[in-house]
Amino acid sequence: MSEPVLTVRGLNVDYGTGDDAVHALRDIDLTLHRGEVLGLAGESGSGKSTLAYAVTRLLSPPGVITGGEVHYHRRDGGALDLLALSAAGLRAFRWQELSIVFQGAMNSLNPVHTVHSQLTDVLRAHRPGMKRSERTARARELLALVGISADRLSAYPHQLSGGMRQRVMIAMALALEPEIVIMDEPTTALDVVMQRQILSQLVRLREELGFSVVFITHDISLLIEFSDRIAIMYGGRIVEEARAAAIYRDPHHPYSDGLLHSFPALHGARRELTGIPGSPPHLSAMPAGCAFHPRCGKALDACAGHVPVLAAPDGDASRTVACWLHRPAPATAAPRP
């Protein structure tokens, strides 16, 4: 496996402070390797987007990072502690090294500025030496990259279709050729045909430019097709992480299994679709022990009292899972605090 480009260790995020605080992310460990596509899947409210915002320090109040580390690894081997960056350092880091394509394709563009102005202001901020004509040339190049004709540069966002807007956002994310692109449900607001078009464009661009992608979606069937590795989130924790094929063929965590069986497959034999009973827990009223145990068909006694740690299952070091089914369950005596 190639070297890591982004490592997250023990990240905790709360919404609010004091006794009313809601724990949105707990003890997240995640590694993004250079050039890979890491899928992040889970139901609404599982903390996928919070993770993306926390890593880029874009959490708006009342979101607070209460613990953990996030490191960015440069190509020369130096590491950058993202949570300790100064405001100026953070501004320089953003978009240059890590860019984001946000959820709302419709509202991500400023309605009162032209596409040109929004594509070039990031160049103006990060490449002060660039001439005006060079910036315009780069903007044209970027639009060409996502298959939009250069005459749309002078267009305002409301003159573009939803798919075009999202492609402009992708072009914008690539403006500085960052190492990492976080895609937060980039195609959720689009129809299936447009989704496919944009995703295949993304795959091509990634092969050409070689950036790493964190792809956030609730559509796990999409991830299995497009990502190298998949991390499944539930209730603010990562419950399973493995190569896409491994998740598809042999999901270890019952929740991953449930997610997989709630989407129809396009190829292969027909199979029965089953949903996951119940609904995701509210973050302020998390069940004790494994957050998934009230909905889990295979729950053991230990599941209600002990939080399973994310670790490699017995005899397989290539993946991790947080489930008591895959390691010796503790005695059901005194639950840990």
């Binding site: 880029t56 708006s60 501004r91 320089a92 984001i100 959820q103 991500s108 202001d121 901020a125």
Partner: peptide, 22 residues
């Protein structure tokens, strides 16, 4: 709280540009 303000911040634009321009 509009998305495009968040995008502007993620783009690493100066605070003045985000505050006034966006």
């Amino acid at each position: 709280s509009e998305d495009y303000v968040m995008v502007a911040q993620a783009k690493g634009l100066s605070e003045r540009r985000v505050m006034f321009g966006y």
